[in-house]
Design a protein around this nucleic acid. Sequence first.
DNA 1: AAGATACACAACCGCTTTGCC
DNA 2: CGGCAAAGCGGTTGTGTATCT
Length: 306
Amino acid sequence: MGRAPCCDKARVKRGPWSPEEDEQLRGYVRTHGIGGNWIALPHKAGLNRCGKSCRLRWLNYLRPDIRHGGYTEQEDRVICSLYASIGSRWSIIASKLPGRTDNDVKNYWNTKLKKKAMPMPMRGPHYHHHAGLGAFSAPATPSGPARSWSQCVPSSLQPAALSPAASGSSSVDTSSSGGDMCFAAAGMYQPPHPMQGFVHVDSSPQTVLAPMPLDVPAATGIWASPMPAASDVGGVALEDAFLADLGAYGDLLLGGFGGQLLQDNKATAAMELPGACYFPNMAEMWAADHAHVHAKPPQGLCNTFT
DNA sequence: AAGATACACAACCGCTTTGCC
DNA sequence: CGGCAAAGCGGTTGTGTATCT
């Protein structure tokens, strides 16, 4: 069983990159470009490395526009807010932070921000219905003292997003060791599909799903909106409308967290009803859930993210 | 001063998605 | 339309460094 390796591990060098290798890769990409084939690149560049390794090294470290460290408060908020709304979709989160890579953001979250976010108190009326970051809870790793959703949060607050598919082999399994989190609310949960807009009203097997009274799905506008011109805020170019949307949604989720963003950015934007969805194949996911839940999907669902 | 422990980050692994034939 | 290869992605591990005892 198992997947064939992408390269001959016995022949290619592994481990940390030397400055010489970095320069070799950088030089090759500078003169020839990536060429659309990472597998062939190391051979062409004279590198004794796996193509995958070259790609990762370039994307996460050697690219000229990469920034390392020095995260601003605003970037922290963006990460926290997005993590709260979409979970560990690091590539998406990183795409909202110019110069940051998914790996970098992920590491930053796991090593610093997560701890920083944990003690955040719950505040604001929204938390009664949609707890935010303050609802971070103890690790729920399979190896550790596992804490289920129901252990972390009253059943009345548990989102229905944990569909059979999502709670099974899906990568959005909140009990994964990497997640290390107990998402104690709909907004905190990594939503695999638009069902995040619903909350359990009962934990019985015949669970009834009640639409959230607030326009939580409006957060989809964050992603659905065309990318506006970037503004430079605190040295970090972030899109005005994006921040506005994030601010509005972040406020909902984080009890004012996003509001600070708004203050920072002085940007305003009306919350939009979802004209599209965040995630790929959401229509299918919705359809899958629709079999279990007798509720109509939001209008305008698409099945692509961008 | 030395060993143990914690932390940060680079890199790897393997699954999923995408594009091409 | 199915199969395959490559790219993308998120979780996990490995390693170097800092701090503590």
